[in-house]
Structures are given as structure tokens and as C-alpha cells.
Nucleic acid binder design. Structure first.
Length: 326
DNA sequence: CGTCTTTGACCTGCGC
DNA sequence: GCGCAGGTCAAAGACG
């Protein structure tokens, strides 16, 4: 494995979380990797992809995702006190790598190494530096839409580490930083990232009571790649008013076959994750690359990727990852 | 007027 | 203890 690959594919860590990425050979470079996902790259549109199995990105965030199951499916022990990879003080981000492949979409060919990586990390109680703001009300209360008073309560309990919501990171090749995912977000901050010329933006779901946040930053290794990290799960449906009927049609369209590489799907904005057949046994966990497909318009055309063979996936990929339609 | 972005300040945890 | 870096707040401004 060459470092070259890593560099090429983004071995940069997600800074605070140390998300590393693996190269196409499956080798990765991480401190505490739980498992990695490496994808194969080559795939011809002729394979015809099986649209019956996929899950929308939004849905994923929606709550239909069972972290434990996911973990289990991926070869991790779901039950234990570490759902995904949580470890006291040491988030074990699941990483994904390999941007190898991808392929090209008819309308917008993407470079071979353009794909999206997906990683997640759950923090049972990580410390995440700085993440905790004023530590006032336990995330629970303040969050709720409530912007409560900030600088006041320092009711932090000793030894009680703030619990972090599960997080999922996606690397998408795109020119736009903020990818449309069906939800409404409000930017609440932007920070320069160390060692990166690109700033990181912080967004929060505008829906009341929804505490989902997401961070968006561009890879400094490959500026064309946008890293989006979601934290938490939406506890509400997609805003119906968003982008017209996007939300409305979402429920249906997301289950509709989308011939990638042939015609652009007409779904609303969302991503479809596709798992690549390539399995890497890093750290004893199976993996596959997840290719997202933007459902938006031209704006995200570059998110269309070749779809890998689905065959193998069904067995390794957690069911919740796919939406099965009879 | 409501919503969203920008941006400097502030807070917190961590490493040295 | 100090400095650094990440994360968040909230005032101010832009926009429709």
C-alpha cells in the first residue's frame, strides 16, 4: 500500500476524530479503526444495478437506521457497550476508504477514484475536544431547539462525559459544499481547519426539537471531495416545503429504480448508497464501499456513480442499509 | 419580517 | 498552567 494511494484517496483524518481512509487495496491507516470499507471500482453499467436494494441517505438519517444492527451487520459487536465503536474517550470511527472506483456516469463522468466514503462513529461518551460547548444543560435540554442560555450554566457533572450522537461521515465528490439532503439546515458556524485551506462549516437542522447537526468540509487532499459528517438522527420527516415536492415525492421515489449510468434519476435531493462488492477484511470486518447517488439536479450530477454488483452485498450489508421493495 | 449567513468571541478538552 | 484547536454562540447583516 502505498502512501501514494492514501494521499490520493484521502487519508487525511477527520481531524478530531481521526477518521482515516484506506486505499484501494484495503490497507488503511488509522489509529483505531474498527472496520473499513473498501470498494472496488470497476463496474460497468452493463451490470445493471439492482435498484431493489438501497436506502436513501435521508432515510438513513431518519432513524430507520439501527446502529446496533448496523454494527452487527458489519461485523461489530452491537450489543456490547460499544455500539459501533465507542470507547470511552476514544471514538472509534468507522472508516471507509477507497475511492477507487467509481466509474462514470453518463451525464457526468467522474474520475475513477471518485466515490464516496462513508464512515460512522458512535460515541458513547467520547470526549471530543471542544465539542461540548458550554456544557450547560445536558445536550438534551438545550439542544431542543432551544438555544438556551449559553454562557450560563456550567452544570457539567464531573466525570460525566458528554454523550455524543452517532455520527456518519460521507465523502462526496462535489463542487458544492453543502449538499442538499432534503432537510433544512442552518449554518451556525464556520471554522478554519488546521492544515487545511478549506474551512469547516457547521450546520444544524432547523426543525425544532431536532438536534441533528452536520459538518461540512472539503478535503484538502482532494478539493473535489466534500466531507459531510452527520451527527444524530432526525426525529421528524423531511420538511414538506423544502424544494417543492421534494419531500413529498421522496417517499416514493426513493424506492424507485434509478438506472445509474443511463439516465439521471428524477428523485428529489437525496443520496442513494450503494455498496460495492469488494470486501476488505480490515480488522475483521467486512466492508464495501458505499457509493452515493445524488438525486438532485444538475447541481449534483457528479454524485452519480457506477453501481457495483449488488450480489454480494445482501449478505454483508446491514439490512437497514437497503430498502427492499417487493 | 422571517430566515439564513457571516464572523468574532467565547468555551472546553487535550497535549505539552 | 498555557496554548492550541475544535465547536458553539449570537449579534449583525444580507436576502427574499
Amino acid at each position: 500500500m502505498s502512501d501514494e494511494h492514501k494521499d490520493l484517496y484521502y487519508h487525511a483524518s477527520f481531524h478530531e476524530d481521526h477518521y482515516d481512509v484506506i486505499d484501494e487495496t484495503g490497507a488503511y491507516n488509522s489509529q483505531k479503526p474498527l472496520y473499513s470499507i473498501a470498494g472496488s471500482s470497476t463496474y460497468g453499467s452493463s451490470h445493471g444495478f439492482d435498484p431493489s436494494s438501497y436506502m436513501s441517505f435521508t432515510e438513513c438519517l431518519h432513524g430507520s437506521m439501527d446502529y446496533n444492527s448496523l454494527a452487527k451487520a458489519f461485523g461489530m459487536s452491537p450489543s456490547s457497550s460499544e455500539p459501533f465503536s465507542s470507547i470511552e474517550g476514544n471514538p472509534k470511527p468507522v472508516e471507509v476508504g477507497d475511492l477507487g472506483g467509481g466509474g462514470n456516469s453518463t451525464e457526468n463522468p467522474v474520475t475513477p477514484n471518485s466515490s464516496v466514503s462513508f464512515s460512522s462513529s458512535e460515541a458513547g461518551g467520547e470526549e471530543d475536544s471542544g465539542k461540548v460547548k458550554k456544557e450547560s444543560p445536558p445536550k438534551g435540554s438545550e439542544q431542543d431547539g432551544g438555544e438556551c442560555s449559553k454562557k450560563e450554566g456550567k452544570t457539567k457533572k464531573k466525570g460525566e462525559k458528554k454523550q455524543r450522537e452517532p455520527r456518519f461521515a460521507f465523502m462526496t465528490k462535489s463542487e458544492v459544499d453543502h449538499l442538499e439532503d432534503g432537510y433544512r439546515w442552518r449554518k451556525y458556524g464556520q471554522k478554519a481547519v488546521k492544515n487545511s485551506p478549506y474551512p469547516r462549516s457547521y450546520y444544524r437542522c432547523t426543525t425544532q426539537k431536532c438536534t441533528v447537526k452536520k459538518r461540512v468540509e472539503r478535503s484538502f487532499q482532494d478539493p473535489s471531495i466534500v466531507i459531510t459528517t452527520y451527527e444524530g438522527q432526525h426525529n421528524h420527516p423531511i420538511p414538506a416545503t423544502l424544494r417543492g415536492n421534494a419531500a413529498a415525492m421522496f417517499s416514493h421515489s426513493m424506492l424507485t429504480p434509478a438506472p445509474i449510468g443511463t439516465s439521471r434519476p428524477t428523485f428529489p435531493q437525496d443520496f442513494l448508497f450503494h455498496m460495492a462488492p469488494h470486501i476488505s477484511n480490515q480488522v475483521g470486518a467486512g466492508a464495501g464501499s458505499i457509493y452515493p447517488q445524488s438525486l438532485n439536479n444538475n447541481q449534483h450530477l457528479h454524485h452519480q456513480y457506477q453501481v457495483p454488483d449488488y450480489g454480494l452485498l445482501q449478505d454483508i450489508v446491514p439490512s437497514m442499509f437497503f430498502k427492499q421493495e417487493p
